[in-house]
Simulated assay, not measured.
Amino acid sequence: MSDKLHIDYAQYHHLIDRVVDAVKNSGFQPDCVLGVSRGGLFLADGLSRSLRKPMAVIAASSYRGGEGTSQGELQISASIASVGPVSGKVLLVDDLADTGHTLKALCEYLRTICPTITEMKTAVVWVKPGSVFKPDFAAEYLESDVWIVQPFETRDFL
């Protein structure tokens, strides 16, 4: 996977709009948008503002190493940052479904720690071809396993 797909802010905002439109057109009205830190925060913010719903944040990471490009064991924060309860209909948001293991594990974990969730849907910007998890909403389904450099990640490669 040596190829890199560089996304600029204009492209990124267009992709966010595609996810927002997909959620709105589906009729799903979440009570809360739950963003996965770090990558899912831009999309979660866009959805939270467009849907006029509160945003909460959970931290999860499986990427390690000097450049944060090697995947290891998934770590999930013990708590959720939120001004209200994470309950009812929840939209779980991350930047991409790479292998899909993070989103799958987060869905299972959230149902355990937030038993008042009645419905959960997921949204991402990208879905890679090898993902074992298929999100409910996505802007793009990639045909190859390209490394995506998002506009806010430019500092990662200095």
Rank of each mutant, 00 (worst) to 15 (best):
Q71R: 06
S61P: 10
A123S: 06
E143T: 15
L47K: 02
G65Q: 04
I7V: 15
L51C: 05
D95N: 11
H6V: 15
I7H: 08
G84L: 07
T69W: 03
V86E: 02
L96H: 06
F42E: 04
G68D: 07
A78N: 15
Y141A: 03
R38W: 08
Y63Q: 02
V33W: 04
A59R: 11
F137I: 00
S26T: 03
I58N: 02
S70C: 13
S48D: 02
Y63S: 01
K89H: 14
A78H: 15
V19R: 07
S131L: 01
G46E: 09
Q75F: 00
M120K: 12
T69S: 05
K4Y: 08
E108D: 12
A139G: 05
H6R: 14
A59C: 10
G35N: 11
V125A: 04
V57L: 13
W147D: 10
F152C: 01
V90Q: 06
A59W: 08
S79V: 05
P129V: 08
A97D: 04
T154Y: 09
Q29F: 12
S131W: 04
Q11P: 06
R18S: 09
F137L: 02
A81M: 12
G40R: 07
H101I: 04
S144A: 02
P115C: 13
G40I: 05
M1H: 10
Q29G: 12
L51Q: 08
D17W: 01
V124C: 09
P30E: 11
V19T: 09
R155Q: 12
E153Q: 14
H6I: 15
F157K: 01
G100D: 01
W147A: 07
L91W: 06
F137P: 00
Y63F: 06
G39S: 11
P151Y: 06
A139Q: 08
K4R: 15
